[in-house]
Each structure stands twice: as C-alpha cells, then as structure tokens.
Design a protein around this nucleic acid. Sequence first.
DNA 1: TTGTATGCGTTATCAG
DNA 2: CTGATAACGCATACAA
Lengths: 371, 371
Amino acid sequence: MPSSARKKAAPDKAASPVSMSDLAKELGVSVTTISRALSDHFSIGPATKKRVLQLAKKRNYQPNHLAAALRKGKSKLIGVIVPHIYGSFFPAVTHGIERAASKAGYSVILCQSHEDVELERQCLETLIGAQVEGILVSLARTAQDLRHFQKVQQRGTPLVFFDRILENAAVNAVVLDDRKGGYVTTRHLLEQGCRRIAHFAGPQQLNIYRNRRQGYLDALEEYGVPANEELIVYCDMTLEDGQQGMKQLLSLRTPPDAVFAAGDFTAMGALHTIRDQLLQVPQDIALAGFSNEAFTYLLEPRITSVNQKGDQMGQAVIQLLLDVVNQQPGQPLQQVVLEPELLVRTSSLAGREPAAPKAKPASRKPAAGRK
Amino acid sequence: MPSSARKKAAPDKAASPVSMSDLAKELGVSVTTISRALSDHFSIGPATKKRVLQLAKKRNYQPNHLAAALRKGKSKLIGVIVPHIYGSFFPAVTHGIERAASKAGYSVILCQSHEDVELERQCLETLIGAQVEGILVSLARTAQDLRHFQKVQQRGTPLVFFDRILENAAVNAVVLDDRKGGYVTTRHLLEQGCRRIAHFAGPQQLNIYRNRRQGYLDALEEYGVPANEELIVYCDMTLEDGQQGMKQLLSLRTPPDAVFAAGDFTAMGALHTIRDQLLQVPQDIALAGFSNEAFTYLLEPRITSVNQKGDQMGQAVIQLLLDVVNQQPGQPLQQVVLEPELLVRTSSLAGREPAAPKAKPASRKPAAGRK
DNA sequence: TTGTATGCGTTATCAG
DNA sequence: CTGATAACGCATACAA
C-alpha cells in the first residue's frame, strides 16, 4: 500500500489525530455542530451535515471513543478474562461471546489469567482501567476465593462468571451441568458392561471437576456399583498426570476395565500408558474423556468425550450480562445451567454385557438444577 | 464472597466510582496533592502521602485510566488482531505478546477477525477507539490489500504485522521463514528416499502458503526431482480438503510416495484417506505437516511437523513495536525473520534409500533473508 | 438550526 | 512542599 517510502517523500500527514475542534475551525462552525452532525442529530441542516461528513472523511477524522466514554460514562466495551485460550473450549466460548456482544453493539477485549490468580487480578485492573461496562470471568484454577473481585463489586461493574466458578458464591453465572456430564458418561460405560471404572478427577476446589466426579459417583450408585477411592486419581489433569496415574491403576491387583477422565488431555495420557502396556482400547479398557478436544476425534481410536457447547455458553453469558446491566440493582442472582452432550466414539464401545440399574432408574435426577 | 444479599442490607456502597476530587474533599487538600501522592511524586511530604494512600485504599479508589489516557495521550494499551485463536499457533503468539508487553508496562487487548476482512476493519475501529498505542496484526486469509489500514497509517499509530502479511507491502513485520520450513521438510522427505512428493498448498495470496510451496520447490530442484503440478493440490487447508485431495492423488496413475501438507489439519485429512485405502504411513506414503498442532504428537503415527515458534514470535513482535514507538518517524521499515524448526516424527520415517542432492548442495541459500 | 458554556477525571504548568 | 488553573476530546443543557 504505502510505496517504497524512500524517494516519494509525499507529506503523508504522518501523525497527530484530527479532533472535532480541528474540523470546526476548518469549517468555521462550532464544535457542537460537528458533534451533532457526526452523530446524525436531527437539529442539523442536511447541507451542513453533508459538509461536515465530507470534511471528516477527507481529514480522516477518527472519533476518540475514550473521550466520549469519559463524558458519557459508557465505553461500550465488555471485558473477558479466561484462564487460557488453548484447546477447543475457551476459544469457542469467546467466539460465542464476541458474536453476541457485537450484535448488541459492544466490543470485546480479552485477557488471559494463565491460571494465575495474581495475573487474574491484573487483568481485572486493566479492564477496570479501560472502563469496561461489564466483566465476564472464568476463574483461574488456583483461585480460592473472590476477594480480588470485591473492587469490581463495590464499583458496581456488572460481573458474570462462566464455566469455572466458586460454588456457594452468590454470583451471576453460566455453567455447564458438569455433574450430568459425568453421570451420562459413566452410565454409558456401565452400559457397555464395564464395572471397575476408574476416574481421573481434577482439582476439587474447582466446581467443574467436583461436579464431574459427583456425576461419576451418581451413576455408580444408580447401578449398584460400590464406589472405590482406590480407582479415583486426583491430579492436575495434564497429559503426564494421565500417563502416571494410569501406570498406578494398572498396577492394582484388579486393574480397571474402564477409565473416565475429567479432561481429554489426561484421557490421552492414560491411553498412552495403556498402549505401552500392550493393552487394547476399548477391548481391554474402555476410555472416555471430557471437552471434545480436536485430537479426540481425529485419530484412532476416536475418544468418547463430552461437548461443552462453548459457543452456546458464550452467547448465554452475554445474554445474562445484558440482563444484569438492564436490571435494577438488587435483582436476584441468576445461574444458568447448560446441558452437556455425550459424544460416543470407538474408545468406549467395549460391547460387553451391559450392567443394569439397581433400582428405579428413571427417577434419578442427577442434574444440578437452577438455583 | 458477598453474603446472601437478602437480609444483611449492609449499605454496601453499591455504585459510583470514587474520584480524586472525592478524596481531596475528604482530606481537605487539593486534587493536585492527591494526584501527586498517588503517583509517588517527590514533592509530597511523607505524612500527607501516607494519609492519601490510606484513604485511597479505604475508599477503594480506582484510577480512571481513561481520563489519564485522555490527558496524557497515552493509554499503555496494545491492540492485537488475529484471524482466530484455534489451534496451537495463535494462542502461543498471544502468550508471547502478553508476557513481553506486560514486562514493558503495557496491557494487551485481543480481537479476532475470524478470517473476515470486514470484521478485521471493525477490530481496527475498536482498537483505535480504545486509543491503543500500537497495533499488531496477523491478516485474515481473505485480505487482498491493506486499504483498511490507511487510517491507522495516517493516524500515526504504530503498526506491526506478524506471520501473515501481504508481501511487497512496505510494513514492519515479524515472520517465520516459511520458505525454509517448506524446504527442510521436503528435503527431509527426499532424504528418506521419497521421490514423488505431493504438496498440499494453501491460498497463494497468503505469504505463508506461497513461501512454503516455494521451499518445497527449492528442495525438489536441489535434488534434481522435477516439479510436477499434478502433485500439487491447491486448497483452503481444511481437514476435508486433505481427505478430498488425497483421494485425487491416490487415483493418479503413479500415486505419490510422500505428502507434505502446508498445514496439520490437511495432513490429518490426508492421513484419514490413506488409511481408508488400507495404505500404511510411513511405509507406503510418508507424511509431514506444518504447525505442530497438539494432535500431531499425541497419537500414532506421530506426524512430522514444523514448529512455528509462536511464543518467540510474540516476543519479537513486541520488541519490534517498542522499537518503532521509540524511533523517529521515517525510520526504515524492518522485517524480522524467525527460523522454523523441523520436528521429525514417525509419520515420515520411510527409511528408504535416500536421494542425493543434484549439485553443490551446501551453497543453497533458500532463506528469505532480511529486507 | 446553530452556538456557548460546562463538566467527565486526570495531569502539567505555573505560582505561592 | 502545596494549590489553583487550564487542558485533553467530546456531549449536553441551555441560550440565541
């Protein structure tokens, strides 16, 4: 676009943004007129309006949203804090958020906490500093409390959490029904005839992992399979945790015949170890993960996983935020719960004799309901 | 954190941000004093400084960066536009960017163009509106020109491109030596004894894909293997393109004995088709991709790929931006070129009799040099 | 239909 | 050491 920038020394109007008063001077009118003309106010004659618009274009006028925001107290900005943007889930959520926000006339700025509470606090500062009108947060895994959100609270900036929340906290939030996700996945394994189902559980202070584990226990109970802490591996849900934990599980006197990992990376790690031991998936051990990462469906065996519906969650979060913004203060808090979707793939099709539920299977309601 | 919010009707100071003048009134001093105390100016007595700081904390004062930015003309914000945040590359770059920017005292706000030029333009507006001090861009794949960046140019906002750029454009940029990446990958396949090497090429208006293809051609030439357009599949680099294109290649009278795809997803698609036809990788067909996506190294066969060093690129981009910011206008443009890294994995270890370079192999210099 | 005056929250300049 | 005042760019109540 710009030419070689060597000889053509065209006076390219290099720097200095053009302001309304610049335009006003040049046209010999007041700043008010400019302001109104640009915002298409009805009290401005079509003639002047046209002149202003033309000059604005010619001088490449760029409105200073910052000044407008300062004046109006509205920035039309929404801030989002996510733990990271790796994998498939958070990118999907932000996608949903951006689409829905854009429709409502907001722009989105994104920050990553990199799973660090201190960075999370810094993101918060940045966003508050940018005068965002609302903040959306999925907590860093190390978050133990919500102290650093007090500022936001007190400042009156609307706050909505999603996916990763602190339970028992009185907050607005959109979450997945992780408990149900854990439940249906485990039930599926039971129905494939598996009885000794191991579980890789994530950090239990995080709602998502605690709920997935609870769903796992729900299903076992329903099918009359006694829960066995020996079969539950608590870890940080990395790939290495999966490898390591699986070694441990395989060294048990009676190894498991199925594994339900609360995350796909861990499931993948487990798979590595299983194969290293020359065992087959799903024939010897059935396997299921959580999150529907790309690698779960790209290579054999395709790994059964749970779709977290990130895109939908993103839209729901914006919806809830807009509700909050347009409500009077003191409204009751809302928690929206989304339905997970089990994606059955080859890794879990053990095809053994199915287990049967213990009692009245239809009546069980493992979902976490709406608060 | 907040209690049940029902009975405890504690006057929680719900809304209204606290300003400097609020603090000034309460302490009976001037706003100036407050401002100076908060910014730790030397001309303020330790006693008053302490009083101010304490009150600020007590009242939960939050500086209005917006107002400060307006006044100072500096927002300490850097805007980043990426085509998307899926996969491993762009998240890695943003990670690098955030770390380096943070070190330099800047905050980063991220926008996605979703590969759409119009959205790219909107992101630009948002960032300009937020008064960012610099803009980093990796182009949407549909970008044909840089017209929408003229505004930024003229406004004097520093602009640095990375990874995806328009060639022959006079811009500051940090890129990977994609040509070399294509070259070393193809050479590796040749050294594995492959002679009919197919290539999945991406949209050729994008520098990255054109360069990868050029590197492929460089290697073929060096080893005296005639290039064959029949073996080059031009596509959009989706998984489906890989599946489809591979079918086409396998139906040739003499099918290829290796495939170099300019992207991992396409490589994965090709792999699917190859296996569907009951052929083996790497024995029948060797395979290599580009980008080092997670799925390339998580399951067998592990797919040979090229590490794009996203994190390094992120740091380099910030470095370059800071250079630009601190330079006088009219400085020569810079293009920084990063080295790719070939990651050899099982998918390409054909182990056939190696090809030998045609002529003086050592003298070849396929790298794109520094402008 | 247009202009004047004022203020949003900060910081820089110049006096005390 | 501290304070009064102006200015950043824009939007609005009020006046003309």
